[in-house]
Design a protein around this nucleic acid. Structure first.
Lengths: 216, 216
DNA sequence: TTGATTAAATTAAATGTTTGTTTAACTTTG
DNA sequence: CAAAGTTAAACAAACATTTAATTTAATCAA
């Protein structure tokens, strides 16, 4: 007897507690280094509750991903389709959304980076599908901007997204190296987070304007 | 009784076999998901040989890092100090070195990415020291170029290195997503590797010339 | 070249922990 | 009073590491 749930079911407070605790521990120690006992302890629940609610440790991490990925494409599509803004403004919004999503949610995104690195993770197909959709949405936006004569013609969208994601992921995942190297050790974690969001956004905006708009 | 070795000792063929097998498995499955049994089996040696030669699984991964990190700073310093080349040429060499090192050694660099993500890895201090030295070498080079009037004044070296490392790491770690999305599934692994080294280098060269040299 | 000696290398087996998951009993809730 | 929630205990499998026994390799006196 066990309470399994499908994708569209809402989670009760105890399930959410388990999901959040697992996300935190998976992010800082990795999937395999985190035992279900650790998760149960962190969440303050009995070990058996995890099997009871999620079936297995593997299905638990799948639930975490599904919970997060679904809305990302919708937000992006909405941002880029907003005709009340110029292409430059929408490009800025795109960058801000990317940076905020990654640096603002280090736990989940560290998990995602790890999963992408690991070839044998079940969630990898899910991630690939998500990446492909994001790439297509951005590609459509860039092409439209090119036709309007706003963006340069020779833009490699795949490489552009790689720089956007790669740079932001790298800064997020090495933020404490960054903090020490910038002599920002007096900042709290959330102050550092805010600092990094602003600086990374500005850096990427400059970078993309330099190749998308200015003359080569 | 056990044969422990210090940093400056050379490895015998069997030890090298263990190091290479471990690197491969740690890279594709992660540190904790790889058992010493797996490593022993991959290397074709008895399980006890790993404790015998390296003491423990933890010390084994440390040996792998030490074996790789040491020469990286030297190569970089040499590249950037070569006065027979122009600043632009040296910038190109810097980028080529970075890309070649990362995309050309996916196993080790996936391990390194993972270690950076994981807060509780012992090798992290080693990595931080290495990053700091690389940052200083590049910073010195950029500053010299600024004084010669070759590079623009307002360059954030930390962000620049983040884009260099982040973009390349991201492309390397998601290279199979990249392959599927670019319809390059007919390429072998080493053909893909070559393709990615060239394309990533060119992309980053364009990117950095756009912000370092051209007018804002 | 022999045979003895010794240390290094190698092995199968055993050790004691920790792992994810299940069970069966118990409590709460509608 | 049944269904859902919760628990401590039990489970077998997998884990890293150690042991003690055996083989290989090297050294050296005869």
């Amino acid at each position: 007897m066990c309470a399994q749930f499908d994708l569209h079911m809402e989670y009760n407070p105890k399930q959410l507690l388990i999901l959040e605790s697992a996300e935190k521990l998976f992010a800082s120690h990795g999937f395999h280094a985190t035992s279900v006992r650790d998760i149960a302890h962190e969440a303050g629940v009995n070990i058996a509750m995890i099997s009871y609610y999620f079936g297995s440790k593997e299905k638990l991490i799948e639930s975490i991903f599904l919970k997060r990925i679904i809305n990302w494409k919708a937000l992006l599509t909405e941002t880029l389709a907003d005709n009340s803004k110029t292409y430059i403004e929408r490009l800025d919004s795109l960058i801000e959304n990317f940076v905020l999503r990654i640096i603002g949610n280090p736990c989940f995104n560290l998990m995602m980076m790890r999963a992408q690195i690991q070839a044998d993770m079940l969630v990898n197909d899910l991630i690939h599908e998500s990446k492909k959709e994001v790439y297509e949405v951005i590609g459509t936006f860039i092409n439209a901007g090119q036709e309007q004569g706003v963006f340069n013609k020779d833009v490699d969208v795949l490489m552009m997204v790689a720089t956007l994601t790669g740079t932001t992921n790298h800064i997020m995942s090495t933020r404490h190296h960054f903090q020490r190297m910038s002599n920002l050790e007096h900042l709290t974690d959330s102050e550092l987070q805010e600092y990094l969001i602003i600086h990374t956004s500005n850096h990427l905006k400059n970078l993309f304007k330099a190749i998308l708009i200015h003359e080569a």
